[in-house]
Nucleic acid binder design. Structure first.
Lengths: 341, 341
DNA sequence: CTGAAAGCGCTTACAG
DNA sequence: CTGAAAGCGCTTACAG
């Protein structure tokens, strides 16, 4: 049988309460007593039963998720995963609170962060837009002992405990390899469509993509980025105009989440079918585009995995328990028509 | 506050013991009393706290994993993941028992299954080799109320509760698309290397691959499968001989786990570098082959995910709790040099 | 067929 | 600085 606090207390010759004080690193125990208890713990190989501890504590994890009130499919998907997680979270004494802030608006985010009631929240996850105010707000949270993880979009690593999302530089290189390889020996131009170059993940993907193309596929030339603001209508206009003007486009990299506009344009003329297209994020639209042969590959990050991972990471910080690094790594997933989930 | 058994007991006007009997569907309660308790449960929206229940029950999950005592890297990786999971499983009152049986030997597997002490084991996961004896053994286990999941390799679905692994037909089609697309406009022959066509997953991948190539890439022609028995030496000899004889091989699909032999041959002559290669399973060898440009893509199933998923699924069956379907779906992962984890 | 009491492994006031 | 006792939300003999 696994040893319990009773065994430790017996072995150390102290009471349960003292064992508990030592286990939880509470003050007011003589150094010598602490040492005796710790020795007993090691001797017995005691490991605390966290479920029992949480039961006794009546611990409830109050986790706050701050996400952009976006209209794009990926963010909607993320929100849906959060609501899914919410259904099951009651079983784990976890309360998920979802707050939406204006997209790409650092001030709105900072205001939301500043408004957090430190006594009511045990952990925070946020889709970050970085700014001085945001950094300040995060620093205050962490000083108050509240764990913070960034989701999908990161800030400098001193301001959060963990980043849950993909490596966007590697993602950009991946897109480059796929387009380069799929284009085969063809040479020509590559169109780039992003949401906004002010967003760090889009900027990173774009830069890495350009570099990888230049390195490995000299026959391909990247055109200037179109910034569609993740808006279908804007993207549609810009891209239609571009493809009308440029007559040598063999590839297209859709960096952001404005896939609907891209799909509309690509479907508008049969000759566009020849263009090799790689986009981001698996949604109903992008899946259909893969099936229809409009998209050749989609690079995805699993929103469900990200939500569950953020929850696990926050709880692990709160309980001071270990995590399995591999389980928390968010993969750069590649989908083609044949391996859709 | 969430309602507890006390609240239910009060509401129904019965004792805790009776509430417990109803909750656990134990016999010896008058139908009318059962109805009263159930009504109270619904009225209060009561949800049982499983951690507390398990604490009271001193529940220990004894899970048995039966895996082939294989020498191939993927199975070794799986075993490593099992040992990883073992480290953390004590925290969850879970005991993992790993038993190894002779690879691809249905009788050895059946004997292991028949030898299970039903009173000591609460759930079984196995890498299946199907046979009449195996089916019989599984049926007996399930009649005894012991949940069974298959891992990586499946049996007919009436003999297990769940399959934890990839869709091998889709995997074969995925390989075909990748090779076809990467070969571009080149036409020629495609070499196929498998472990054994007697193994269902290899056979399924091969069939789906052949069909997809025939459908979509008429310029490519599949050569007869080499069966390397997942053995590096055998694979090396067979493949070297084949490539020496055939002078028009533009693609190679390594269906099984004998990647080392494949890599050796491909590195032996510079002209083999031109061959487009897709293999299965991410291991140290296959990762290096991707980095070196020997392999163009690797199709992977995440062994760590599979192990954790099998554990979650078995526990969910044991506790009769719901699972999140998306979390348990094993993806057909595509890796190229740029998105390696 | 039903209930009172003790216990699972931990924590928490309260007392000293 | 330390301990005895009660309690977290369940389950389990035991008694009737």
């Amino acid at each position: 049988m696994r040893p319990t606090v009773h065994d430790v207390a017996g072995e150390a010759g102290v009471s349960l309460a003292t064992v508990d004080r030592v286990l939880n690193r509470r003050s007011g125990v003589r150094a010598e007593t602490v040492a005796r208890v710790n020795a007993a713990i090691i001797r017995l190989g005691y490991v605390r039963d966290i479920s029992a501890a949480n039961l006794a504590k009546q611990r409830v994890y109050n986790l706050l998720f701050i996400v952009p009130e976006g209209s794009n499919s990926f963010m909607l998907g993320l929100e849906q995963e959060l609501n899914q997680a919410k259904l099951y979270s009651i079983l784990d004494r976890t309360h998920l609170d979802i707050r939406k802030v204006k997209t790409f608006d650092a001030d709105a985010l900072a205001t939301a962060l500043d408004g957090i009631d430190i006594t009511q929240v045990s952990g925070v996850a946020l889709v970050a837009t970085e700014s001085e105010r945001v950094r300040g707000a995060l620093a205050r949270l962490r000083e108050a002992g509240i764990p913070v993880v960034t989701l999908v979009s990161d800030v400098s690593d001193v301001y959060r405990d963990h980043y849950v999302g993909i490596d966007n530089i590697a993602a950009g290189r991946t897109a480059a390899s796929l387009i380069g390889r799929f284009c085969g020996r063809r040479s020509g131009k590559v169109a780039l469509v992003a949401g906004s170059m002010l967003v760090k993940d889009h900027a990173e993907r774009r830069a890495a993509f350009g570099q990888a193309i230049a390195e490995a596929f000299p026959g391909l030339e990247c055109l200037p980025v179109l910034e569609g603001r993740d808006d279908a209508a804007v993207t549609r206009t810009l891209l239609a105009e571009l493809l009308d003007r440029e007559h040598d486009v063999v590839g297209l990299y859709s960096i952001g989440a404005g896939n609907r506009g891209v799909i509309d344009v690509l479907m508008s003329r049969t000759e566009y079918r020849e263009i090799t297209v790689v986009a981001h994020e698996l949604t109903d639209h992008s899946k259909q585009a893969l099936r229809d042969g409009i998209f050749d590959a989609v690079i995805n990050q699993d929103a469900g995995h990200e939500v569950r991972s953020a929850i696990r990471l926050l709880k692990a910080r709160i309980d001071d328990t270990p995590v399995i690094a591999n389980q928390e790594a968010i993969r750069i997933e590649i989908y083609i028509r044949d391996n859709l989930p």
